[in-house]
Nucleic acid binder design. Structure first.
Length: 200
DNA sequence: CACCCGATTATCT
DNA sequence: GATAATCGGGTGT
């Protein structure tokens, strides 16, 4: 059984304003451990922030059974089904004055288990720059589903986020969020500049 | 490459 | 009944 060497980010990392966390998650590693011996991972290269007073956020209209994790403690996974057939993976992040907030992880640069991800995802036909490029492709590549909703991402387990590299401020670009119809002017999508694994 | 559309479910009106 | 933090396959240029 391989030793898992990646160090999870502590809960305090997520206990800050959602926008800052969204930026600082770039360059971190999303780690998926399957059956305690298969390790899949990727460097986060694209994120989006969703806050409480944000018409585009699931939290905007108040708590319900789907979004309740967004109103809970920080550092936990919020996974939900979109368009009836894809899962989106988020991390709960907010400062103590906010009741809800999360960061959508939209794209990864594959690091560990690229061959396994290619088999599972069947996206991109042999190219590695489409495997986890987009929120639905990412969850498919790492086999993330509703069973991971509410999981603690600050401890080594089936799914966690770890330290990896630091992205210089120069290389963080803010853009409009993708696929929303409300609050479309906010520049709350963050990408690693010139990285080919960012969704198009 | 651009556009169009169907899939399929939780939530809201 | 409509819409949604999406994707892949189809058709046309």
């Amino acid at each position: 059984m391989p030793r898992i060497e990646y160090e999870p980010l502590p809960r305090v990392f997520y206990a800050r304003d959602t926008i800052s966390v969204a930026k600082e998650l770039l360059g971190k590693l999303l780690v998926r451990v399957i059956d305690k011996n298969i390790i899949l991972s990727g460097m986060i290269v694209e994120t989006e922030a969703y806050t409480l007073n944000d018409p585009a956020s699931h939290a905007f209209k108040g708590i319900n059974n789907r979004n309740r994790i967004m109103f809970g403690d920080v550092g936990y996974a919020y996974v939900y089904l979109i368009y009836g057939n894809h899962y989106c993976f988020n991390v709960v992040a907010k400062d103590s004055s906010m009741s809800a907030g999360a960061v959508l992880i939209r794209a990864l640069q594959p690091i560990d288990g690229i061959d396994v991800m290619q088999k599972v995802s069947r996206s991109g036909g042999g190219r590695d720059d489409r495997i986890a490029s987009g929120p639905g492709r990412l969850t498919k590549a790492l086999s993330i589903g509703k069973e991971h909703n509410g999981i603690d991402l600050t401890v080594r387990g089936p799914l966690y986020i770890a330290h990896y590299v630091n992205i210089d401020k120069e290389y963080i670009v803010a853009t409009k969020r993708i696929g929303i119809t409300k609050a479309t002017d906010k520049l709350w999508r963050f990408i690693v500049k010139d990285n080919k694994y960012v969704s198009k």
